[in-house]
Computed example of a mutant assay.
Amino acid sequence: MINQLANLNWISVIIAFVVYNVIGALWFTLFFSKPYKMALGKENETLPNNPIFIAGPAICTFVVTLTFAILLYALNIRSLGDAIGLSLLIGTGFLVANTTNIAINPNIPRPILYSIISGTYHLVGIMLVGVILVMMR
Rank of each mutant, 00 (worst) to 15 (best):
I2L: 15
L5R: 03
S12E: 02
V13P: 00
V13W: 06
I14M: 06
A16D: 11
A16T: 04
V19F: 04
V19E: 09
V19M: 09
G24P: 08
G24S: 05
L30W: 05
P35H: 02
Y36P: 01
K37S: 02
A39S: 10
L40V: 02
L40A: 03
N44K: 08
N44T: 07
E45F: 12
L47R: 04
N49L: 06
N50A: 13
N50Y: 10
I52T: 15
A55L: 15
P57M: 04
P57I: 09
A58G: 04
I59T: 10
T61L: 13
F62G: 03
V64F: 14
L66K: 08
L66T: 07
A69D: 06
I70P: 01
Y73E: 12
Y73D: 14
Y73T: 12
L75F: 12
L75T: 03
L75H: 09
S79V: 08
S79C: 11
D82F: 13
L86Y: 07
L86M: 12
L89N: 05
F94G: 09
V96W: 01
A97Q: 10
T100Q: 02
T100V: 08
N101G: 15
A103W: 01
P106H: 08
I112F: 08
I116E: 00
I117S: 06
Y121P: 04
H122F: 13
I126A: 06
V129F: 05
V129H: 14
V134H: 03
M136Y: 12
